[in-house]
């Protein structure tokens, strides 16, 4: 099918982008999620505001011990290592397993997060890495913790008229341990259960369980999970309502594998 008609705007500044969005335009990024929704006519916006030409939209800059990643940075750029150090290694390993390379060359980290598909990879991983989302609206920049940026299925903490400009993530020491596991029926398909765990020496380990048809579940102190993966995974998953037995089983497996990965 073909999309229904819309008009196309290309804002040259973030202020113009916000004006367009406030007037009802739909932001367009890599269109790797929006494109299919348009083609299937699940989305029928009057206007698309193409963010791809905004200044500083894509790219990475390190300030102190934080890396700022422009919303328009593609999965492929992250896969190819634009983020330095241990954090970059971790993000590259996640990016490589999002969709397929020809989707990753256009799909963006910001689009992925703003889209807030519960099964999406950055939706699951960024809350574990910590840091903030940088929203931009009529009143300028606003910082929101990534741990509760995604609030529901396709729902985020962005206010009406706000766009996502960047994410800011703390850099990691080489000693940081990381485990990540997802269950996909075919490579590149959306996950049916994802878990990840970040263990930085001297800090509380943090885990996330995601892709369970709701917002990601952030486990702020995962010490118990590290101590007793099997028992604790069972307890955590029992607290997720409405999962069929097989989804429960793979969710538990995801948590156990994430622990194993972080220990390896």
């Amino acid at each position: 099918m073909k999309p229904s008609r819309f008009s196309y705007k290309r804002p040259a500044s973030w202020d113009d982008a916000v004006k367009l969005v406030l007037a009802g335009a739909r932001p367009g990024a890599g269109t790797q999620s929006l494109g299919p929704m348009l083609n299937l006519r699940l989305a029928r916006p009057d206007t698309i505001a193409d963010l791809r030409h905004l200044p500083d939209y894509a790219g990475v800059s390190v300030r102190g011990d934080t890396v700022r990643i422009g919303a328009g940075t593609t999965h492929a750029a992250l896969e190819d290592g634009v983020v330095p150090g241990r954090l970059g290694q971790i993000m590259a390993s996640v990016a490589r397993r999002i969709a397929y390379r020809p989707v990753r060359t256009r799909g963006t980290i910001g689009g992925s997060l703003a889209h807030a598909d519960p099964a999406a990879d950055w939706v699951a991983v960024l809350p574990a890495l910590g840091g903030v989302a940088v929203a931009f609206g009529a009143a300028g920049e606003r910082r929101l913790p990534l741990a509760n940026f995604v609030t529901g299925i396709f729902e985020t903490a962005l206010a009406p008229g706000e766009v996502l400009r960047a994410v800011e993530v703390p850099m990691l020491r080489d000693a940081a341990r990381w485990g990540h596991w997802k269950f996909c029926r075919k490579i590149g398909e959306f996950s049916k259960a994802t878990a990840c765990l970040l263990d930085v020496p001297g800090a509380r380990p943090r885990a996330v369980l995601a892709a369970l048809d709701g917002p990601p579940m952030v486990i702020d102190d995962a010490a118990a999970l590290l101590a007793d993966p099997t028992g604790e995974a069972r307890r955590i998953v029992a607290g997720c309502p409405g999962l069929s037995p097989w989804r429960q089983a793979i969710a538990e497996a995801a948590l156990r594998h994430a622990v194993q990965g972080a220990r390896a």
Partner: peptide, 19 residues
């Protein structure tokens, strides 16, 4: 539908010509 856009492989079914 995969083609190259600016040297990188991409899906031409979900990239608007305008953009």
């Amino acid at each position: 539908c995969t083609i190259e856009i600016d040297g990188a492989p991409a899906r031409s079914c979900i990239a608007h010509a305008g953009s």
